[in-house]
Amino acid sequence: MIWILLALAVVIFLVVVSYINRIILLGNRVDNAWSQIDVQLKKRVDLVPNLVETVKGYMKHEKDAISAVTKARERMLGAKTDEDRLKANSQIAGALKTIFALAENYPNLKANENFMMLQEELSAVENKIAYSRQFYNDSILMYNNLVSTFPGVIFAGIIGKEKKKHLEITAEERKPVKVKF
């Protein structure tokens, strides 16, 4: 009898451990996914001044568009919360799109090797942000499913883990980007 109880205790212990480990593992993955997004956001912030420098000489009549990028970047650097950062981020994205659309009118700029390199890098960063957000949201979905369904919800309660929030697309991002000419 005692042995059966002991075996039962061992099995229960193993189940609890595996569930708790899984919750922690998936939680870490979510955090790691967020830091991947952050890396890309920082990279973009670093690339923007180079772009402004390159573009300034060619696009003399587009001061508004250029200052929009610079302002969005400053807002990003000053952002305190993750939410602020994401908002500033979508502003940068919009401002950059305007710059690249306007660049179509400047053949000399478009032929500039530095500009072409920056355009490739910035569009790659844009894609990387989109893909790492996609992975972040997928990871969160998995994590939330685990901590909100039975029996995961019990173990999550024991170690004090809760559901995490998805990254919503901001209202600004949902709007098509307006390009002023």
Partner: peptide
Amino acid sequence: VNVVEELALAAG
């Protein structure tokens, strides 16, 4: 290289 890095992020 950029495309590979992008999709590695997508795949995690």
